[in-house]
Amino acid sequence: MRRYGWMLALAAAVLLVDQASKYWAVSALSDGERIPVIPELIQLRLTYNAGAAFSIGSGMTWIFTLTAAATVAAILFMGRRLRTASWTVVLGALLGGATTHLLDRLFREPGFAQGHVVDFIDYGPFVGNIADIVLFASCALLLLLNLRGIPFEEEADQESASEPARTSAE
């Protein structure tokens, strides 16, 4: 349960940083205004995304709301079995990113379960937010953990796992 607490703490940190940065962006940036951070590489530009990545599926916001809710529920369920620090970080980051996007979908304009995600970090062809960066990094780490064969849960004791169950007739 200690790892579960760390997962929740990381998720809360991601949620707070992302929502605070979105609050700042909405209050400080005009829709469409571009502020160079690193000229010709990164700019700040306020946009509202009704779809998924690259604004795909803009007319199906409710599907993204349901998907985010299911993802949050699945991570909360799976997180109870955490046994390694690396998977704790991955699930905590994924939970934070999914939760903050879910909150945007639920409570931002134009209405409940149809809200648009606030994006303001413009990387050329892409515009995103802090949660997007965290989600991308945690998915990359998830892939790396899988490629390296790092198990989600600690394996059961090999002896007890390999012994056949004894029956009372033996």
Rank of each mutant, 00 (worst) to 15 (best):
G96R: 02
A169C: 09
E40L: 03
Q43A: 11
S27K: 05
V37H: 07
T88C: 13
L8Y: 13
L66N: 06
Q158G: 10
D122L: 08
R45T: 15
M7E: 06
M7S: 14
R105W: 10
V134K: 09
L66K: 02
L142T: 09
L8E: 14
L41G: 00
T71Q: 13
I35H: 09
A73P: 02
F126Y: 14
A68M: 03
I38W: 08
L44V: 11
A12F: 14
V134E: 09
D132S: 06
L10G: 15
G124N: 09
F120E: 04
E163G: 03
L102P: 01
N146V: 00
F112L: 08
P151K: 08
A28E: 11
L82C: 10
L95S: 10
S138C: 06
E163F: 04
K22T: 01
R34N: 14
L29R: 10
D157Q: 11
S30V: 12
I150M: 06
F54I: 04
F54C: 05
L145D: 04
D31W: 09
T65A: 03
T100I: 03
Q43W: 02
L91T: 00
I130N: 10
A113Y: 04
E33Q: 15
R80E: 07
A98Y: 00
V37T: 07
E155K: 14
E40D: 10
L141N: 01
C139W: 06
L82Q: 00
G111T: 00
G115I: 00
V90M: 07
G51K: 14
Q19H: 11
R2G: 03
A70T: 07
A85W: 05
G59V: 08
D157M: 11
A69N: 01
R166N: 07
A50D: 08
A28L: 10
G51N: 10
L8S: 11
D31H: 13
L143Q: 04
R83M: 12
D104C: 10
A50I: 03
L82H: 03
Q158V: 14
H116A: 13
P110I: 02
L76R: 06
A11L: 06
V72S: 08
E33G: 12
L44G: 12
F54M: 04
L135E: 09
R108F: 07
F120I: 08
K22R: 04
V14Y: 12
I63K: 12
V14T: 14
A28Y: 14
R166S: 07
T65M: 00
S21D: 03
G57Q: 14
E40C: 02
A165K: 07
R34T: 15
I130K: 09
A70H: 01
L144F: 05
L91K: 01
L145K: 03
L103Q: 01
L106R: 02
Q43P: 05
V90E: 01
G149Y: 07
G79W: 03
E40K: 08
D31E: 14
S138D: 08
C139L: 06
W24A: 13
D31C: 02
A165L: 05
S86I: 05
R3Y: 15
L144H: 00
L44R: 11
A131S: 04
R105N: 11
L141H: 00
R105M: 13
M1N: 08
T61A: 03
E153Q: 12
P36K: 10
